[in-house]
């Protein structure tokens, strides 16, 4: 099935000159089939999201009486203004932004400090500490949920954004350290060594030299953290009960419950909730790809 690799110039290396003609015709057809297959997969991946955009711009008459594939007769942008102003969607949105931003900054700074201490400083036990962080990757969130709920209740931190932000930070530290680690190990140490010779303090070296030098990987780690935090559901659903502290993922649940028959409003709500991620993706897709790859497979 993988004849695709014997196209064009490759085929020449491979085949005797006599049957080159038929073979390249065959591999061109095979290439076409492969390509078609890949495009069908792409359509399967992207179509549900396009359909969501379509019905977010329709009214109920169009949704219920016309083909689901039809374009909206005239785009009903009022669906968006309605859900943004009538419900708490704008409030949920700003809560999501706040928790995401605070947790991302906290996670990236703390993870950078740990990675710096592990890769740059000499101490016994650095391997063990790194191991502790890495094993954290395998712990299922649900196994910590009841104790976290009970501890936060005791500390009067339940229904308090702090509980969510701290949980985001703790659970994202392992993957963030993992993403940073490769970059720190490859980063030349000469500049830092020179600074030590000049008598610079460690804090100066870390904040003024190393941290700026690692800005590319910090961007990657931050965008991955942003996606995780923005999409998080269980912690907010468990720790937060007041409307005023809910994030989009939890808030849209209740909201959609009220609008069960208004597909346009539901669609608009969902589009609002995924739009920041889609925007980040269009602007920073290379960083996202890099971050997911480096955060997932290290063996």
């Amino acid at each position: 099935m993988n004849t695709v690799k014997t196209t064009g110039s490759q085929a020449i290396v491979n085949e005797k000159k006599t049957n080159l003609g038929t073979n390249s015709l065959f591999s061109r057809a095979a290439y076409g089939i492969m390509y078609l297959f890949l495009i069908i997969v792409a359509i399967f991946q992207i179509f549900p999201i396009i359909w969501l955009f379509l019905f977010s711009l329709k009214n109920n008459q169009e949704v219920f009486n016309m083909s689901p594939f039809a374009l909206p007769e005239s785009p009903k942008w009022e669906n968006y203004s309605k859900v943004w102003t009538e419900g708490n969607i704008s409030l949920y949105f700003f809560n999501s932004v706040t928790y995401t931003v605070v947790a991302v900054i906290l996670t990236v700074v703390l993870a950078s400090m740990v990675t710096f201490a592990i890769t740059r400083m000499n101490w016994k036990g650095s391997k063990i500490v790194l191991g502790l962080f890495m094993i954290g990757l395998m712990i299922p969130v649900h196994s910590t949920l009841i104790p976290l709920f009970s501890t936060f209740t005791k500390l009067n931190m339940i229904d308090n954004p702090l509980s969510v932000i701290l949980a985001y930070t703790a659970f994202n530290l392992p993957i963030t350290i993992m993403i940073l680690l490769g970059f720190y190990e490859a980063l030349p140490r000469e500049v830092e060594e020179a600074a030590v010779m000049d008598g610079a303090s460690i804090n100066y070296i870390f904040f003024k030299i190393t941290l700026p030098m690692t800005s590319p990987v910090i961007a990657t780690a931050a965008i991955i953290n942003m996606i995780y935090n923005w999409n998080e559901f269980v912690f907010v659903n468990t720790f937060i009960s007041s409307e005023k502290f809910k994030t989009l993922t939890v808030g849209i649940q209740n909201f959609i419950g009220q609008y069960t028959t208004d597909w346009g409003a539901i669609g608009a709500t969902l589009v609002i909730s995924i739009l920041p991620i889609l925007l980040a993706f269009f602007l920073l897709s290379n960083r996202i790809v890099e971050g997911i790859a480096s955060g997932s497979v290290k063996g």
Binding site: L38, I39, V41, A42, Q45, I46, P48, I49, W51, L52, F55, I227, W230, N231, F233, L248, T249, V250, I252, Q253, I256, W263, I266, G267, L270, S273, I274, I277, L278, F281, S285, I288, V289, I292
Partner: peptide, 23 residues
């Protein structure tokens, strides 16, 4: 193509769930 394939993975499971409820 591989970037297009990746898009669903970036979205919140909650939003995906709501979308597939409609599908």
């Amino acid at each position: 193509l591989r970037k297009i394939y990746l898009i669903p993975m970036l979205l919140a499971s909650v939003a995906i769930a709501q979308l597939w409820l409609k599908i």
